[in-house]
Amino acid sequence: MDCTLLIAVALGALGVFLLLPRAQASWRKLGALITVLVGGGGLFYLSRWAELQESAAPAGGLSLYFYIFAAIAVGSALAVISHPKPLYAALYFVILTLATSALLLTLYAEFIAIVLIVIYAGAILVTYVFVIMLASTPGGAPAAEYDKVSADPLIAVLVSFLLLATVLQLMFHVSGPGSPGFMNTNTGLHARALMAANLGYHLPQFSGIKTPAVGGMAVLGRNLYSHYALSLELAGVLLTVAMVGAVVISRKNEPPAALGSGELPTE
């Protein structure tokens, strides 16, 4: 067990716990402080660790942009879940989306990055904002009680960070860099085939493997319309059904004459 990891996660949990909306606003500031410290420390540790790995086996692929946008993403995600006003939370979510799409760009997924912005920031978030405005108290009024005080923050944080600790532990110390025999190379089959091709070898075990360039729209499109053609059609059906369903659900029912109110009896 890596104590550093556990302590970092525990501290992060404490910070998030304090950060969540609660009656005493001062505790939230302390929580924000702890969280920033833990997050910054974590990222710094991560970069040091990565540099160590790189120096052991230099292969490239790390960049400053990752740390910047990772910090922005985590920070804005925390702001989303901890802000008492839904509208602000939604705007922080836009920031999160932008940071995420920047991270995707570092992964050479240009198309997905743009699509993420268009769909999330452009479509989904706008819908959220509409609903928030539709269902909220008029502007200027104080936030509702159920927004100002979160429910069972301790249990939520404990369970979530227990899962996070477990996953990180599994990643870094069981099968990942913390485990014995870890090599900082790309062990993926395609990657090895590409590497061999780049080096001029034509090894028989890679002979059947195509090594396309990643990220391009052409590659993605070919993949979607060949391997996942049926799934793609199903996704279209799903979207249509969801649209029809949303219209049906949110339609204001004219009360049928027999029932009077047109609504199910409530309590």
Partner: peptide
């Protein structure tokens, strides 16, 4: 395009 290393993957 260079290969992505294990360490970089684990960061993401």
């Amino acid at each position: 395009m260079e290969l992505m290393t294990n360490a970089a993957l684990y960061q993401y």
